[in-house]
Each structure stands twice: as structure tokens, then as C-alpha cells.
Nucleic acid binder design. Structure first.
Lengths: 354, 354
DNA sequence: TCGTTTTAGTAAATCGTTTTAGTAGTTATA
DNA sequence: TATAACTACTAAAACGATTTACTAAAACGA
């Protein structure tokens, strides 16, 4: 499929070799100084006070002139810090991970940290290999997103929406109980009594807590979730297709309900399609409640009522927490759980039961 | 907002220090062998033929037992290869970049490569700094996505949807002319003659080619795009909001049109909302054509007719191209342009003009 | 038996930094 | 006038691997 433009091929741009990097040693030779002196001056070490400003200036200007760029590998090897984290996600294009990563990066980039990303695709072999590879590459810590802990955390780890209680791992989670209260409360207040639930995939970290808290919130209101009204997402595509299929199976049972609480906005969008294909109106005959508040939620038809998860904030919180732990060395207290609050966003996909 | 669970704080998991890494030197000492021998054996170097199998086994089992993990920094420093690329994107959560990255990663992960991601957020300072920082970190090459080349590529570079003709940079692009033909052709065949166009943001690499090829395709059919029927996206959020605002301004002019060709699916979704708020039906009174074919496109109401861009393939093509160039050393021919083909996906948001 | 190969390794240099522990020469202090 | 303190630097070790250039002993060949 890729089409080369053959007439336009060119020889390697050897000209750019001009900018090839100078080492500290070369720079030192060029200045008739030792690498020690250069290093002290360039890093503004305390012991550089005795170096006269004139020499410093010579060094700085030569460094600029020869375009000296310190080799981070060498430096990291020596100082035993890489300023690099590892980030493990299920996959990149699922929206959820991307939003969290955005928050992670916003923090890291201001602190001079970079990160290596790896997707586990829910594959067990990758879940075990990736942490090892990241360790070999000397990352200082790991941020995992919606990732089961199939490995022993030999590195400081923060797991976003992790629910396993692993020693040394901080879980950043949503206040699920509150989320369930908001969601079920909203539907209840609109008069819904028979509420269907689309559970997340088996491998998704939030699936169980989410379902349990929803059941609990419903029970409290004396409208327990009927097992016959629950379906589970199958497969791991980030497409609304999964929600569509799940809803189709539920509708095929013929059970009656007036509202659906979907696992996320993406599946809610799929569910709406399935409901409408049955000739039912959303929200007229069926209310649909989403989760996450992705960008598309507000602009879907009908606009999605949803429980907002502050994904960006969860990412940045994870990053801040990990960096703090790294800078505090090993005396740091490791919080087991950091929780953030959901928000109910009421839009057009839910309505009073008629 | 983050709430600590104070009673649950724990002291640092010192126990995990057990798994702390052994160096090759320590392993060698433990075996009463030199690091040379270990290195030769562990890397299966040709000169290791003279080492008896028994010794090799001893080495392997000790390595496993003591959980030896080679330090990638040290190795990279010595062999002068990091097996790491840099990836530059506008921002992570915009869907487009995430899809491309997905393709990039699919290739890199099979080749033992990792990558460092950096977002430039369309900021000029970052566009200059990021390549330098990546260079310092000794990445072997750079994959840029929708990124203007504000820097001299001193590293092998592949730019996905790059349109600048820079020496040493391979641009992976969509066949825009074909895309425009598909889009305008489709609308034309449905009887549309006055077609509005939502241009991309000024900073978006594809904006100009896309607009020009669309105009060209329209002119060829004697239905030139009326400048009064073009609007441009403003701002850089990945939300449909931008398309919504753009469409609002266009509608406010009172100009008549029967179809809109949007810059991407996200803005098309926003545009649909604006159109419907005016009391016009999509596709009854206005057809809307998107671009990209994001996951949500098929499930929007109405389902989006769109020009599919093979973003995953563009990412993997970029990665393959770069890796090939790296392995061929400097004798490699550098293709200037690699182009991929779009596909027209007809769904419900376009219809015959009535 | 003597020289050559092969076997089974090792010492030391190297990658590019940082950092420790200096050293001359000068200036201040007792 | 010693000596302590400061100034302006540097040599060498270290980080943890790989790689080049060896060596000592055993086996082989003529």
C-alpha cells in the first residue's frame, strides 16, 4: 500500500553529520582544560566557586559554539539516576489511557522527566515481561494504568485505577461508592426502578468495584439490580461496538427496564445505537447513563448524561505521587490509596420515567 | 481533592530490596570467573565457542538464580546503540496521535525498541527544546506526528503527515488528492453543489494540502468552493466544541449550502450539533462528511460518512521505515515521501440532495 | 620432541560523564 | 617567616557493561 516516490529518493544527509556531538573530553581538549573543570562549571557545582568567571565564560561559550550536548546515558550511569519512568497501559488508543497519560506527561515534563511507554494488550506474557524490560532500562519508577499487577513491584509503583492491595504500590482510584451513588441516585430520582447494568470486561480493573458499588447503591434504595438485567462487555476493542453487542444480547432476552447504567461512555454510545435499532427512543423510553465523560460525550446525540472521572487529574496525581516518593528516598511514607471524586454531568440521554 | 486514607499509610517496602539488581561484576565474583567470560557467554558471542557447555550452564543458572539484569544504560553507552526512539506529538489525548502511536508501538515492541514520548502542544519553545532533549538522551531517531519541523533534524526523522520538504526527513502522508476526490466526488454524486468546508487549525500540518486538494477536486467538477462557505477551526482542544463553534459562525452568515466537508470526524460531530440546533436535519437538509474514521464515527447519530485515514498503518509504516534506515547505516536511501491511501466510508450523515 | 592449534579463559581499555582526592602556587594570618 | 587558607585547577576512580588483545595450559601434528 505505501507508495514510494522513486524519483525523489535522496542520498543520506551526510551534511547533518556536521552537528555531530562533541564529547566533554573533546571540549576539554579544545580549551586546554580538564574534563573535571568543565563538568564542575557546566553543572554549577559548589566547588566551582574558585573558578574565575573568565574561565567559566570561556567554557560556556565554547560549549555553545561546538554545540556540546551532555550524553545522558553516561551521566545517568554515573549518578545512578535516569530521570525516566516507565508507563504501562492496556493500549494507547483507548481514550482512557491517553487522557491519563496526558496528565502524567503534564507533570513529568515540568520536572525534566521522560517516560517509556509500553502496552500490555491484556497479554499475560507482556504483563510479566514489560516490568523487567523497564527495569533493565533503569526506569526509576512505574506508573501503571488499568493494569493488573502480574509482577512483583521491585520499583516504586503507582497504579491508576488499581484495586489490588500490593505492598509498595499506591493505587490512585476514583471514589467508586460516590460514583455509584451519583449514578443510581440520579436514575432513581428520575423514577427509574428497573435499571440494567453493562459491566466492564473481565480484565478491566474497575469492573468489579464498579458493579458492586452500583448494586449496593441500588439495594440501599430498595431497587436491587436484577441479575437478568446485567450484561458484560466482551472483547477488548475501544470501539462502541462492544456496548452495542452487549445491549443487543440484553434486549434479546425481552426483559423490561427503563434505564441502563453503562460501564463507560464508549459502551453507552454503542448501547444507544442498539436501543434505537429496537425502535425504542433514548431517553424517551430508555435512559442511558455513561461513565468517564470523554470528549465525545457532550456532542453525542442525545448528549450523554455521565459520571465524570477526572482522568487527567488522576494521571497528574499519580505522577506527582511517584516523583515525591522518588525524591524522598526510602524514608517516604507510601500512601496505599489516593482517591479522587467523580461528578455527575446531566445531559440529554437520561429523562424522567414516563 | 485527592484524599489520603491516612490509617492505611505504610512504611516503604524495604522487603522488595531483596530483588535488588546484581551487577555483572558481582555475578562474576560469585562464579570465580571474569566479567569478560560472562559477557561473552551471556551474549552468545562467537568467541564463546571455546567455553565448555558446563561453564556456560553454570553462568546461566547463576544469572537466573541471582536474577541478573544487564544494565541497559551501561550497555548502550558501550555499544553506542540505545534501541530507543523519540516520538513527538502535539498532544496525546487527541485520538489522532494515539492511533498513530499505536501503530508505532506495534512495530517497535517486536523489535526490542522503546520510545520516549513528548508533546509539543504547538508551543514554539517546546518544538525546539524537545528534539534537543531527545538527542541528549541518545535516541537513535525521531518519529514526529503532525509536527512542524522547527528544528534541524540531526537525527534520522520520519514525520507522519509532515508536508515540509526537509533534507533527511521522510514524510508519511495520506494521498490527499485521492481523499479530496473521494469526498467531493461522493458529495457531488449525491447532487450537492454548494459545499461548505471546515478547514483545520492553522497549526495543523494537513490543513493546507487538504483544503487545496478539496478546492481542486471541486473546481474540476465546476462547483468551486465559495470562500464565503469556508470556516477554520480555532483553538487546540480535541473536543467537538471547535467544530461546533466553527459551524455556528458559518451558519450565522446566512449563506446557503447543502453539505459540509469537515476537517475531521471530531469537528464533524460538533458541526452536526450546530446544524441541528439551527433546526436543520442531518442528512435531510445538510449532509456532513467527516475525515479520519475514528472509533466513534460509526456509532454517532447519524452515523458519520467519512474519509478513512489508516492511522495505525501510517504509524507502523513510519516505524518500519525508520528502523530500516537505522539498520542500513548511512548508506540507506531515504525516501522523501511515503503515501498511503484513504477510503470512503459511506454511512448515514450524507444523503442525496432533495 | 618441538612447534602449532585449540581450549579456556583473563586484564585492561573503552563508552562519556561525575566525583573524590588531590596538587601546585598564591595570599593571608600568627 | 612559617603556616594556614585560598585559588585554580587536575589525575584517576567510578558507574556497568562490551571488546580487544592477550596468556597459560592442554592437545595435536610432523
Amino acid at each position: 500500500m505505501p507508495r514510494k516516490s522513486p524519483a525523489k529518493d535522496r542520498q543520506s544527509a551526510v551534511s547533518s553529520a556536521k552537528t555531530d556531538s562533541v564529547s566533554l573530553k573533546q571540549l576539554a581538549a579544545h580549551l586546554n582544560l580538564s574534563t573535571t573543570t568543565l563538568s564542575l562549571v557546566l553543572n554549577d557545582a559548589p566547588s566551582a566557586v574558585s573558578i574565575p568567571q573568565e574561565t567559566k565564560d570561556r567554557i560556556f561559550s565554547a560549549a555553545r559554539e561546538l554545540n556540546y550536548r551532555p550524553n545522558y546515558l553516561a551521566r545517568s550511569l554515573r549518578v545512578q539516576r535516569t530521570h525516566t519512568l516507565g508507563v504501562i497501559v492496556p493500549e494507547l488508543s483507548d481514550g482512557y489511557s491517553a487522557m491519563v497519560l496526558n496528565g502524567v506527561e503534564a507533570v513529568l515534563s515540568t520536572q525534566g522527566y521522560f517516560y517509556l511507554t509500553a502496552s500490555h494488550l491484556h497479554r499475560d506474557d507482556l504483563l510479566k515481561q514489560i516490568p523487567q524490560m523497564l527495569t533493565e532500562r533503569q526506569v526509576e519508577g512505574v506508573i501503571a494504568v488499568d493494569t493488573p499487577m502480574r509482577f512483583e513491584p521491585n520499583l516504586p509503583t503507582v497504579n491508576v485505577s488499581g484495586h489490588e492491595d500490593v505492598l509498595g504500590v499506591t493505587n490512585v482510584i476514583l471514589n467508586h461508592q460516590h460514583a455509584a451513588e451519583l449514578g443510581i441516585g440520579h436514575l432513581f430520582n428520575l423514577g427509574h426502578r428497573r435499571i440494567a447494568v453493562i459491566k466492564g470486561q473481565e480484565f478491566s480493573s474497575d469492573t468489579d468495584v464498579r458493579f458492586e458499588t452500583i448494586c449496593e447503591a441500588a439495594r440501599k434504595r430498595d431497587i436491587p439490580i436484577d441479575p437478568k438485567l446485567t450484561v458484560q462487555l466482551q472483547g477488548d476493542s475501544p470501539s462502541p461496538e462492544l456496548g452495542y453487542s452487549a445491549m443487543k444480547t440484553l434486549l434479546a432476552t425481552g426483559e423490561k427496564f427503563t434505564a441502563v447504567f453503562a460501564f463507560n461512555d464508549v459502551s453507552a454510545i454503542g448501547a444507544i445505537r442498539a436501543v434505537e435499532e429496537m425502535g425504542l427512543r433514548v431517553p424517551g423510553e430508555v435512559s442511558v447513563l455513561g461513565f468517564d465523560d470523554i470528549y465525545a460525550a457532550a456532542f453525542h446525540n442525545p448528549a450523554l448524561t455521565t459520571i465524570r472521572q477526572p482522568l487527567f487529574e488522576m494521571g497528574s496525581l499519580a505522577a506527582r505521587t511517584l516523583l515525591e516518593r522518588l525524591s524522598n528516598g526510602h524514608e517516604a511514607l507510601i500512601p496505599e490509596v489516593l482517591s479522587v471524586e467523580p461528578t455527575l454531568i446531566v445531559r440529554g440521554s437520561t429523562a424522567r420515567v414516563s
